[in-house]
């Protein structure tokens, strides 16, 4: 799920340990999704609906939709306006817009209890990532939480996608 296709990058390749992604996806309960679209065929709307289905609360952030509901959740103009606390910011905007959103997240991190800032597939801003890490926020770039959830919890491979996972262990089905 990406706001724009990622061009083949000549930058340092990103690699995140599966254990880190798994921990984030297990511990995070509430996600502020910046750039969430009300249009149901947009990738952000797909990702929001999927994550809701997996038990996350997703709060849409989109100035154009301020005061309207998307998938049953009130939309806010920016992170500071969200009245509740949230664990993660999911950035569904172009890479060059991610810096300002990262700074906004840093500014309200303590007040909102933000632990993770996650930039979507195709979104990468190394300077912003540096500032986020300095502020103590876990930062993920150029990945989709929907795809990573599907990959790490067994659903993505149903569509013939290479998950990169090898295990002889019997998966367990757990109540949510």
């Amino acid at each position: 799920m990406s706001p724009q296709p990622a061009p083949p990058s000549t930058e340092t390749p990103l690699h995140y340990e599966d254990a880190l992604l798994r921990r984030i996806l297990k511990e995070v309960k509430t996600i502020a999704m910046v750039g969430a679209s009300a249009n149901w065929v947009r990738p952000s709307n797909f990702a929001m609906k999927y994550l809701q289905g997996k038990g996350y609360r997703v709060i849409p952030v989109n100035p154009g939709q301020q005061g309207e509901e998307i998938l049953g959740e009130m939309t806010y103009a920016n992170l500071a306006d969200i009245p509740d606390q949230f664990d993660m910011v999911d950035i569904f905007r172009a890479s060059n817009a991610a810096g300002a959103i990262a700074d906004e997240a840093i500014a309200v991190a303590d007040e909102k209890s933000i632990k993770v800032v996650w930039m979507q597939l195709g979104v990468r801003n190394d300077a912003a990532a540096e500032r986020l890490e300095e502020a103590g926020l876990i930062t993920i770039m150029n990945h989709c939480p929907k795809i990573e959830y599907g990959r790490l919890f067994g659903e993505l491979r149903w569509s013939g996608i290479n998950t990169g996972l090898i295990s002889s262990k019997r998966p367990r089905m757990r109540a949510q």
Partner: peptide, 14 residues
């Protein structure tokens, strides 16, 4: 979904 599928932790990423 009322459940999710979890693989025990020592699964390795290739």
């Amino acid at each position: 979904r009322s459940y999710f599928i979890e693989t025990p932790e020592n699964e390795s990423p290739m």
